[in-house]
Amino acid sequence: MTYRNVVFSSVLAASTAILLLAQAPAAGQNNGTFRRTPDGEPDITGIYDARTATPVERPKALGSKEFYTDEEFKAVSERLHKGDPTAPGVREVRGGGGAGGGGGGRDGNRVSVQYEKDILGYDVSKSNYVATKRTSLVVGPDGVIPPTLPEARQRNAARAAFTREHELDRVQNMNLETRCILSARQQIPLFPIEDSNTHIQIVQGKGWVAIYQELNHDVRVIPTDGRPHLPKQIRQYQGDSVGHWEDNTLVVDTTNFNDQTAFMGSSENLHLVERYTRVSDDMLLYRFTVEDPHTWDKPWTVEVPWMKANEQQLYEYACTEGNESIGIILAGARAKEAAEAAKTTK
């Protein structure tokens, strides 16, 4: 397993990246850096790093302010580079995957997981993850993920209760990440991940776009020939993705999720639309909208900057091949039960 820590680059490089971002146009605009593949399609190929310092949800104090002014952005960037722990996003690591969480976000608590970065060996002042002038990744005046509907809360509470009670009864009850089936950090749509394996490679052949995530070697090969979705009875962990080009933007529509991969507590009716737009030589804007009438009362949208990575290739991430922990955890649970049974018979 490749464990790629943050690539520490110089403060100078980080500042450069931030400056570049400050000049980046809004999604969908063509600023002249647009290019085509030799086959004549818009070219979004490359290796990207999806880390960002922008928080998912807007800090309350900012109200409905969607963008920092140039002045404010400069100040925020400086605080970031100085390692100010109160700077936006610095203490937040997204993606869940912590003990008891994950499970493809089945409990709907994915975003709340936070780690102390210094424990993981991060030096914030030297990291090159970046921010845009957006005050939150969630787009719009609210800047927060809408609350889930009562129906969804009930559904997720029932799952959480079952997990608390029965998670260690058998491997099939454990979360999908532990089982190397689908990590909460690899499931689509892609929130930024910041602890490891943050790289994503896009390769294009005529009529197809392959999006390869290093984390647990996930690859989606998306047709762009206008074909319809798979029949409804074929459900998949990562759904079924079909794409098309709108000007220079790859638009990917995904449905047919199964009922295991709840995204932020969503149901199998999740409908995801992702938009990939190259906005400069160094940046691809990744924008997604999720809707699910069984989970939220309205769709919501997130925009994440993906920066061109320094890496020349992705590295292999094997998972199930080295998964010793499941056997240890289950054996521990059985031993505990046996000990408790022995106590009661005494």
Binding site: R170, V171, Q172, R179, C180, C319, N323, G327, A331
Partner: peptide, 15 residues
């Protein structure tokens, strides 16, 4: 396919 190998690998550790 990891899920299809689970019963084989860890089924004997089920409650």
């Amino acid at each position: 396919c990891p899920e299809f190998a689970e019963e084989l690998l860890w089924g004997d550790l089920s409650k």
